[in-house]
């Protein structure tokens, strides 16, 4: 029975079993749940399919969220990328568009897949469907990519946290970006070691990020942080694929994220009492919405 408690153990398992990170997750899930590999694979495929639908629907939907403070940006981004003018090119450009599409859908209370949370649901579909389109990675490989991502997220979630309320945005967008970075590496033929370095490098870049949603909504600044998360994931993946290592081992980075999250004041952990939520504009939005809620309910 495999149980993975750390990135160190994960890499040992990969070496021992001569497996990828994704394959280790698939094996562990089978061990733990008693389900057939094909059943588990199909369950993950269903999640990928839902993500694909969110991307397709979201990139065409320019409607505004019920709050009135988000929506319409993914259509703008798609137009811009399609004109071929994007400074960051098609690979990162498409990832940003798709990520926007899913995060905007989330704000509209449409169906999405939490990866690992709804607040960070844009990042993985963003990078996955961009490398599907631009690097010709087949959909079945993307399903394996989701096993890679979930293995990395599994270690992070059990050693630290993945929700903004518990650990700030570093735990939420930070974790998703870290998972995405490792997944890109594995899908592009990097070694498990490189994937874990990419995970560490991405997470380090987002340490300390606070969770400060305007009016408590998962919209401002969450949606754009998802978008930026995709480009950090690609950068971290490239750094690792170049053979550059994280000087601080991934497990220690995760532990640091945990320690920072514990020390972070409550105001900056999804309570909408600090950070951008407390700006003049943030407060105005809150008051406007609060008046509306009081009238409706």
């Amino acid at each position: 029975m495999i149980e993975i408690n750390s990135m160190h153990e994960l890499l040992q398992a990969c070496r021992r079993e001569k497996s990828t990170i994704g394959e280790i997750m698939l094996q562990m899930e089978g061990n733990k749940s008693g389900k057939e590999t094909s059943t588990i694979f199909d369950m993950m495929k269903e999640r990928l399919w839902t993500m694909k639908q969110s991307v397709e629907k979201g990139t065409k939907d320019d409607s505004i969220a019920p709050s009135g403070i988000s929506g319409g940006d993914s259509v703008k981004m798609v137009d811009y990328i399609n004109r071929g003018e994007a400074l960051s090119g098609h690979l990162i450009g498409d990832a940003m568009s798709y990520s926007l599409a899913v995060s905007e859908s989330n704000a509209r209370m449409d169906v999405i897949v939490a990866t690992p949370t709804a607040g960070a649901a844009g990042i993985l579909p963003g990078i996955l469907f961009s490398i599907h389109k631009n690097n010709n990675i087949p959909l079945n490989n993307l399903v394996m990519g989701l096993f890679t991502a979930s293995m990395l997220g599994y270690v992070i979630a059990n050693r630290s946290f993945i929700s903004g309320a518990a650990g700030g945005c570093q735990a939420e967008v930070g974790s998703a970006t870290a998972m995405a970075a490792g997944t890109i590496v594995e899908l592009n033929g990097g070694t498990p070691e490189q994937a874990v370095h990419a995970t560490a490098i991405a997470m380090k870049s987002l340490l300390g990020l606070v969770c400060d949603p305007v009016a408590g909504l998962v919209e401002v600044p969450c949606i754009k942080r998802n978008v930026i998360g995709t480009s950090i994931a690609f950068s971290a993946a490239d750094i690792a694929l170049a053979g550059i290592e994280s000087r601080i081992p991934c497990d220690e980075v995760i532990e640091t994220m945990y320690n920072i999250g514990k020390e972070m004041p409550g105001n900056l952990k999804e309570t909408a009492l600090g950070g951008l939520a407390m700006t003049k504009t943030g407060q105005e939005v809150k008051q406007k919405l609060f008046r509306r809620w009081c009238h409706n309910e």
Partner: peptide, 15 residues
Amino acid sequence: CFDIIGPIMVGPSSS
């Protein structure tokens, strides 16, 4: 793995 990738859900917040 489905605690991490999932649930399939309506937005906006998993927690």
